[in-house]
Design a binder for these strands. Structure first.
Length: 508
DNA sequence: TTCCGACAGTGGGGTCGCAAT
DNA sequence: ATTGCGACCCCACTATCGGAA
């Protein structure tokens, strides 16, 4: 199959907003793809590369060679070149990658270049990822979407599942099993504004667990062999030796556990997320990193214990298995209750200990791998500040033509003026985007560099955020975490905005 | 007919490791 | 030694479609 076939299908998918139409386009192409190309086609059309990452990003894709006129590149040719790109490393590799990229793109037509460039950057933006591709695989292979979904949750990689469905139908899909050593897409949580709201969503009695601000991990053990994976299924076994030792010391030798690693201070309070994140990412001197920043692990779910798969069991039963297999000090603290007041008190206590919040879990819910089901609901406290808009950036994609991303500043009571604390594009409705674009253009002031419009600091906006973190990027030495717009405050003047001192007090 | 669950898009700050400067 | 880049850790929120109610 030719790359141009995929480029055309992708364009058709992007042009139709209806999901059923997208599914039709994708299924039609999958019906024509050969068995040796199925994985590649499914990967490309769901916005990913079979190689996962190839060391090429936005910068490397600037100034591509002139496109050619005849579309002759095949999927297999492109895939081979991308694999060669991925294997480049060491001195001179940047030039080698550039040469390979030039060779690759010089063999492509304009539409093919555009498609592949967006794909490699991870910005296909055709309105179809795994969710739509699952339906397309089901349609093209004549299998139920639920079977495709289930195989995906066990295998973790849709191209392999899709290729199996296309060649072997529902029988092939049913042959996918939970395999120790191969990660499963982790179950995700929805969020709610309060414990009471979360309890209502979950429906009555629920388990309420500490939510730790660390890194999600999935630990596998088969005999003496332990592997550890992240949320995106990357293998980080070598970076977390204390976790490997902890799992290796458990009595059960056949395990898949779900949990969180976190760096704690000697007094048991959590380090800032930046510390945990940096420790987990350290690869060059793991022993040294371990000495200075030891990790603790807390498990909250068990997908397999002693050879038995637990995915379909209710949370209650899985947790009972977890408690049997793992000592209490390695289990995330939890409270089972149907009393909102009791839950609220538990939440307050978790915050008092310096942790992030709680996750409210339905006792009946099975492990919905890879999905953001209603079985788990997280609750975190929310801070708000009234800040001043200092500038705005032009949006992209569906926000093209609108000023989207806001630069936020707090008042500086000493030096006068405003100190930038970060940016946000979240929380804006289309109506607000239209309003603020018009408004900012009347306030435009100072240099415009093509994508940023500096404005007179006159608009006050109420911003919600999760916390303040240390920053080397911003002049005040701090930045907001997960900032989002609540509403504009036309009733407030910039002189009434919150000050940097208020923000600094939250840094602790 | 209305409601709501699932999805995709639109980007945020921080850190590490590597190659180039 | 510093800088730029890619990759990945954490993530919130709105718009939309289409099946459920």
């Amino acid at each position: 199959m030719l790359l141009i076939d995929l480029a055309r299908t992708s364009a058709a998918v992007a042009a139709d907003s209806a999901r059923l139409a997208k599914v039709r386009h994708l299924a039609e192409l999958l019906g024509r793809v050969g068995p040796d190309e199925a994985e590649i086609a499914i990967a490309y059309l769901s916005g990913e590369l079979p190689q996962r990452q190839i060391g090429v990003g936005l910068a490397a894709l600037r100034d591509l060679p002139e496109p050619r006129l005849a579309a002759t590149a095949t999927l297999l040719q492109v895939d081979t070149l991308l694999t060669r790109l991925k294997t480049q490393s060491g001195p001179g590799s940047q030039a080698a990658r550039k040469a390979l990229l030039t060779e690759l793109f010089a063999a492509l037509t304009g539409p093919e270049q555009a498609f592949l460039s967006r794909l490699v950057r991870g910005e296909l933006r055709q309105g179809a990822l795994d969710g739509v591709m699952i339906e397309a695989v089901a349609k093209a292979s004549g299998t139920p979407a639920a079977e495709v979904r289930r195989a995906l949750m066990l295998r973790g990689w849709l191209p392999a599942v899709g290729a199996a469905a296309l060649s072997g139908g529902v029988e092939a899909l049913r042959s996918f099993r939970l395999e120790v050593g191969r990660p499963v897409s982790p179950m995700l949580a929805q969020s709610a504004p309060s414990v009471a709201a979360a309890l209502e969503r979950v429906g009555g009695r629920a388990a309420i667990e500490w939510k730790l601000d660390g890194v999600r991990i999935q630990a596998h053990r088969s005999g003496d062999a332990v592997s550890v994976f992240t949320r995106t299924l990357d293998d980080i076994t070598a970076q977390v030796p204390e976790l490997v030792e902890a799992v290796g010391a458990l009595p059960a030798a056949d395990l898949v556990l779900d949990g969180e690693v976190i760096a704690l201070r000697p007094d048991g309070r959590p380090e800032p997320f930046q510390v945990t994140s940096g420790r987990v990412a350290s690869r060059t001197d793991v022993a040294g990193a371990r000495r200075s920043t030891p990790l603790s692990v807390f498990f909250f779910d068990a997908l397999r214990v002693g050879g038995a798969d637990l995915l379909d069991l209710p949370d209650e039963a899985r947790h009972a298995e977890l408690a049997r297999a793992v000592p209490a000090e390695l289990i995330t603290p939890r409270l089972v209750t149907d009393d909102a007041a009791e839950g609220e008190a538990f939440f307050k206590e978790v915050l008092r200990r310096g942790h992030e919040g709680v996750v409210v879990k339905s006792p009946q819910s099975p492990y919905a791998a890879g999905r953001r089901g209603a079985g788990w609901v997280k609750v975190k406290p929310r801070h708000t500040l009234d800040l001043v808009v200092l500038a705005a950036e032009w949006g992209s994609g569906r926000r093209e033509g609108w000023l989207s991303n806001l630069h936020l500043g707090a008042r500086d009571p000493v030096g006068g003026g405003f100190v930038m604390l970060g940016k946000t594009f979240k929380g804006l409705t289309d109506e607000l985007l239209a309003w603020q674009t018009e408004r900012f253009l009347t306030l435009a002031d100072g240099p415009a560099d093509g994508w940023t419009v500096t404005v007179r600091p006159e608009l006050v906006v109420e911003i919600a955020f999760d916390g303040v973190q240390r920053s080397s990027r911003y002049p005040g030495g701090m930045a907001l975490r997960f900032a989002r717009v609540i509403r504009y405050r036309p009733d407030k003047t910039p002189e009434q905005a919150d000050t940097v001192d208020t923000v600094r007090a939250l840094l602790l």
